[in-house]
Design a protein around this nucleic acid. Structure first.
Lengths: 337, 337
DNA sequence: ACTGGCACTCCGTCTGCCAGAGTGCCAACA
DNA sequence: TGTTGGCACTCTGGCAGACGGAGTGCCAGT
């Protein structure tokens, strides 16, 4: 494609993103030194519109980018904008003093919302990407015990369980067996080893062991229990004018966490930044918004995904850079700590 | 105060709440059988306005209630509207199958948002209102351990901690001491007993014991770590027209959880329903909204508070009834389960 | 004490109008 | 052939003015 036409598209996208108003040929040549006259730009714009990259809200208005236009911009025109020093510094220090996993994720989401000025989302690390670190069995009453699963990413999963007739000695024995079978293993390995363990328990543990292991297997496999943390919702108030197309769908998607979790899940192929623009989103509730996401984790493993949701009219280069930077940093932090 | 004037005020409030439009004398006599003519009602309205219960947006418009008007309505005119059968049924069953405390609170907030059609908030049970059920110490690496505190309400608090040179045997011994000192005690009792324990540890435990107990005391005292669950945010989209006065402040308050936690905290005097209308709110961010809250807990103890936030123009009788019903039910559920 | 009537006020809406911004096209030009 | 200046055309957004409707306040009558 013609070099200058791309340049024009880039100019349109950047101008529109910052002004939120249709941009015309005159304003374009004034603000970017394209080296040609408005008339020439008009010809290019007509061509770009013909090809579907831009559109006019109505005859004799300026042009605005289409989803396709943003896509081209992101793919071929957007060099990631380097972060400001203040942002880099903020990212370097925002996790200092985090006391537990919850705290880490809450700080992360707040930071991400602040640097991107969008709604931010951070998924809890999956169980499957982490090792079992400890299994604890606590007696709650004569007939109930609490089962606690601690993973290497710091995530703690708990489940109460009816268990008639247990005493401290048998629980201790059971605990030892469970830990021996699981600690240091990935969740899938641990699940496999628990499945074999169930047949090799001493007779004294058989009764309580089976129920316990069943519950534990359920906890290990429960992808369903994926959770997320949300922040920066008030950033939506900047889009009060686009209430119906931006604010409402995003709020609804945030409430319906399942949709967002799926969407983020699909982005977890690598630690690269994934961008879904408007109609590219598989969920129609979000087809007037864009989602920018990235996996985060150690070099070996992706723990989960984080990202932001906002209007399609979004500063892609900056936002993508911020998402990537935050994802890398929190990934490193979690795999070290 | 004149009986009929109260009746007029009640009619104005109910009409305005359902129509969201200033209500005039003619419409009033048409929709409520007050037994008098519009002219008479006008006189009453003039008096009510004089006394500050209602106001007109501009000359020759209908009247709308003031905060003071709503307050009178709530105090003297609002009989709690009984819940519909469907709502009662929903409340009876929504907690069935909850697997842990998180789950209980999430279900609660969703239910409350659904029946009130407002933004709902549920505070996590305070540590101070619950007993310590178990303390666990888990070795994470050679120099780090994880401290876990489990309370009778099912809340789990965790904290990682640097602890050089520990081995499984000393940890087990420490664990036994910690549990002996705390289990079955309220958090304040437990804190007191831990404080004395720290001076009576065997020499072998002194080094690791002090650091551990210090952290544990911090966990027990951390009112700061009060958390909450939010739901029903998309209900705000019904107030798109009042974006600045309703949507924006509420979103901001939700992000600033501290403010809401304080506000709810002040409501936790008993299990009665507390209503704060508009300017009655001590936090200026929320002075154009109303907060309806109630403590929840066992007969003996208030665990925490739950409630809803919405525009001052709100159906107080229904909302108050729903909040009360949900609070009672979840309180009972948690003290039994 | 209540009511019907009446004059008055103010809002919201609709209309028509105008300036501004932007386009598309065409003819001229390098 | 690609670029440019010029020009006629179109559409929006804002503004002024007119008007109907809803509602009030007040007064005189019952």
């Amino acid at each position: 494609m013609d070099e200058r036409k791309l340049e024009v598209l880039r100019a349109i996208v950047t101008d529109y993103v910052s002004s939120q108003e249709p941009v015309g040929s005159r304003a374009l040549v004034e603000r970017h030194d394209l080296g040609v006259s408005p008339a020439t730009v008009r010809n290019d714009m007509a061509a770009l519109e013909e090809e579907g990259y831009i559109t006019q809200p109505h005859t004799s208005a300026g042009r605005i980018p289409t989803d396709k236009g943003y896509r081209l911009f992101v793919d071929r025109l957007g060099s990631l904008k380097p972060l400001s020093l203040a942002e880099q510094k903020a990212i370097q220090t925002f996790l200092a003093g985090a006391v537990d996993l919850d705290d880490v994720l809450h700080r992360t989401v707040r930071l991400l919302a602040q640097v991107t000025q969008q709604v931010a989302i951070v998924q809890y690390p999956t169980l499957s990407s982490s090792m079992v670190r400890h299994v604890e069995v606590v007696s709650l009453s004569t007939s109930r015990v609490l089962l606690i699963l601690i993973t290497s990413t710091g995530r703690i999963e708990q489940r109460a369980l009816e268990l008639a007739d247990h005493d401290e000695a048998t629980l201790a024995e059971l605990r030892a067996h469970l830990n021996a079978a699981t600690v240091g293993n990935s969740s899938s390995q641990a699940a496999a080893r628990l499945s074999t363990l169930v047949d090799h328990l001493p007779a004294s543990l058989e009764a309580i062991g089976q129920a316990t292991i069943a519950t534990l297997l359920e906890m290990l496999s429960s992808e369903a229990s994926r959770r997320m943390v949300v922040g920066g919702v008030p950033n939506l108030t900047r889009y009060g004018a686009e209430f119906e197309t931006t604010v409402k769908p995003v709020l609804e998607a945030l409430e319906e966490q399942v949709v967002l979790l799926k969407l983020l899940g699909e982005a977890t192929t690598a630690d690269a930044v994934t961008v879904r623009i408007g109609q590219e989103n598989p969920y129609k509730e979000l087809q007037s918004t864009s989602v920018i996401a990235s996996g985060y984790g150690s070099q070996i493993d992706i723990f989960a995904t984080l990202g932001v949701v906002g209007p399609t009219r979004m500063d892609y280069p900056s936002t993508m850079a911020s998402v990537r930077a935050v994802a890398r940093y929190v990934g490193r932090f979690l795999s070290e700590g």
